[in-house]
């Protein structure tokens, strides 16, 4: 059986598409070609690189834990709860990190939690100072990552058939038991996807961290900030850090697609 001919169309479409593919691929490949393996590994002996790696790992993990802890219950409420006045306003608010540039987010955080900020003023009375501390990095990352997680988690909970939760209740499982034992396990692939997306966003956070937390080595200088800082003196170190971030990002993507295949497969 011959396939219907589309003439030149596929070739021309591929031609245009290829320009975009190369546009994305060339920078990725270039990164890997800009450093020798020896230089790549040597970079990790440098304190500034080590500090940035360790700081990024710590802060992003804490940020994600916080986002998951506070975002999961909210996502479940929004997915399954009754409607209420102001619901659409709340949903718009939850997308603020999506539509505001990170620099704006950083400035907003400063206005809220800075020394003279709306909340920061009162925190200062308790001897708590957020800006330019490691905690501020976590705050900036959580702020930027939260929208990704809540949106995805909400979709995941919406995807769980309400009938299952209802039957669970009639079988004697209370609301908590039904949520923790039935709905969360069923929504787990979506929850993990959301957490991974939020995590990669948190790791890549630059603008908000720069404005709200500053750029102090070992304290607030995360990997993206370290790349920016060392670029002028040590391209090799900057590229090495960039490669780590990129490999990590692809690793997450790969793990997620594996996860989704398993979720739709039997079991």
């Amino acid at each position: 059986m011959r396939r219907l001919s589309w003439g030149w169309m596929p070739a021309i479409q591929w031609g245009f598409g290829l320009v975009l593919v190369l546009f994305l691929a060339i920078p990725v490949v270039s990164l890997f070609f800009s450093v020798t393996p020896r230089k790549f590994f040597a970079a990790f002996a440098e304190p500034i690189v080590q500090d940035a790696l360790w700081l990024s790992l710590r802060t992003s993990c804490i940020a994600i834990l916080l986002v998951v802890l506070f975002g999961t219950p909210l996502a479940h409420r929004l997915a399954t709860g009754a409607s209420f006045p102001g619901r659409s306003a709340l949903e718009a608010l939850l997308q603020v990190p999506w539509v505001t540039p990170p620099a704006v987010a950083g400035l907003a955080l400063l206005m809220a939690f800075g020394h003279n900020g709306l909340v920061g003023r009162h925190l200062a009375d308790w001897g708590i100072s957020l800006p330019f501390s490691t905690a501020a990095v976590v705050v900036a990352q959580a702020f930027e990552g939260s929208a990704f997680f809540v949106q995805t988690a909400r979709q995941a909970f919406s995807g769980v058939d309400r009938g299952l939760a209802e039957v669970s209740r009639t079988l004697g499982a209370g609301p908590w038991r039904t949520w923790l034992g039935l709905e969360i396990p069923m929504a787990l692939p979506g929850l993990l996807t959301g957490a991974a997306m939020a995590w990669s966003r948190a790791l890549g956070e630059f603008g908000a961290t720069m404005l709200f937390a500053g750029n102090l080595q070992g304290v607030t200088q995360t990997m993206p900030l370290a790349i920016y800082t060392v670029l002028e003196q040590d391209v090799g170190a900057a590229v090495s850090l960039a490669i780590v971030l990129m490999v990590f990002g692809f690793g997450l993507l790969w793990a997620l697609s594996r996860l989704r295949q398993r979720a739709v497969g039997p079991g």
Binding site: D161, G163, L164, E166, V167, R169, T170, G172, A173, G174
Partner: peptide
């Protein structure tokens, strides 16, 4: 529902 002691079988069995 969990305190009613009812057996409930919905249309699609769930």
């Amino acid at each position: 529902p969990e305190r009613r002691r009812v057996g409930y079988v919905p249309q699609q069995y769930a």
